[in-house]
Design a protein around this nucleic acid. Structure first.
Lengths: 233, 233
DNA sequence: GGTTATTTGTACGTATGTATG
DNA sequence: CCATACATACGTACAAATAAC
């Protein structure tokens, strides 16, 4: 009496259905592998392969020796895939990275109005803190990556769209993971970048849309220039 | 002499490195499982679990009885993850789907200039064909999904950004896969949607940015209205 | 068209590493 | 430190799909 599980798609479906039927939420534990074997009716190998698939999609998380849990449903698979694309296809001079940066810039411009509206006359201390830290780091020649990321994350939260915030984080991660191929940024680039972030915040709290759009251009100028330089090489 | 492969991360890395070192491209075959066992030095189970991970990310593709190949590096993992998010988190009235649609609209508006520039005075037959087919289908009350998708794909190719085109395709797929929860669209909605696409094309070939932006609004109006209706329910 | 070799899919058993109490 | 529960890894055998002869 052979089974007809063509591939692991049916097993992954079964696990996803199990999550839905029981109303599990991110962080909740799912049955152990042995229990899944019984409930779904396939071998342990198949369960494990299906779990791998769902872990890759951040639908599940596995803690060795502890158990398996519902994942964060983040955009991490997007990041991993795009990073690999970036290193696999360096053709046409980092076209993949350029595409990501261009799209980041487009989205920033498209949501300028919402962000300026949200920040006009506010000057939240969280954003200010990150900007000050960036200026300080750049002055010392230290990398500003952690503050840079937090700044953009905080900024993205001004828009009432969780998907947008996740995309911003994903784009930032992709950029950061692929950028090392371009070589390290100079101290002057660091300082210019820090000042660009300061300019973004200033313009937003001032409610100056025009200046905010110019600050976006200033923010991406060193990155795109670096990409241009590598295009000619 | 125990091995120190902590998890499948090292095995997936090994396979990815293999692809990079040999300069393989999407569609190229990679070694068989048995060969990978020898070359990487882990068991077949581990190889298979790593392959599952990479298949989920569309870095690999497996054909039963034939072999394993480099995948299309598409955004399919983004689609699968977001779709599951949409069905798992119906809270706040389809917030996830609304976020995706809103972002689609933002991107369309942000790239309006590039698309209008590319199409001004052109009126390409490929786009015209899809629009005519949509109008015809809507008139008969048939779904316009396939032509709708092709139209947006063709439109996205006017922008010189492969990532944008992939995102458009992914957003469309997410929308299409989650939307059935909202119930079927009426015939009048279908016809309105078909006319909206026609309006997009007309405005673009006329080089009329203002009208194009209005057409974008008309395009998303029925969708957002449907989402609103379900929010109040 | 049928046979066979190749390759992936499934199942099972066993031993080991890891976290919890 | 020990015992328990769980995930990790390995090896083997067989089933199913595909391709080539």
């Amino acid at each position: 009496m052979p089974r007809h599980n063509r591939d692991d798609r049916s097993t992954t479906r079964a696990i996803k259905n199990l999550i839905l039927e029981r109303g599990l939420r991110p962080g909740d534990p799912i049955p152990t592998e042995a229990e899944l074997v019984e409930e779904i009716g396939v071998s342990r190998s198949s369960i494990r392969e299906a779990v791998r698939t769902l872990v890759a999609l951040d639908i599940l998380q596995v803690r060795h020796g502890t158990g398996t849990f519902v994942g964060g449903l983040s955009l991490s698979p997007l990041v991993e895939g795009m990073v690999f694309r970036g290193v696999l296809m360096p053709g046409k001079n980092h076209q993949a990275l350029r595409d990501v940066v261009e799209l980041r810039r487009c989205l920033d411009l498209a949501l300028e109005e919402q962000i300026v509206d949200a920040l006009h006359g506010k000057d939240p201390s969280t954003l200010r803190t990150e900007v000050d830290a960036m200026l300080e780091c750049a002055h010392r020649g230290d990398p500003i990556t952690t503050h840079d990321r937090r700044f953009h994350l905080l900024l993205s939260e001004c828009v009432d769209n969780q998907f947008y915030a996740q995309l911003v984080a994903a784009f930032w991660d992709i950029h950061q993971l692929v950028a090392p191929q371009l070589g390290v940024a100079s101290t002057s680039d660091l300082q210019a970048s820090a000042r660009a972030h300061a300019g973004l915040l200033e313009a937003a709290v001032a409610g100056d849309s025009q200046r905010y759009r110019e600050a976006i251009a200033a923010h991406y100028e060193p990155i795109l220039r670096s990409l241009e330089a590598h295009s000619r090489a």
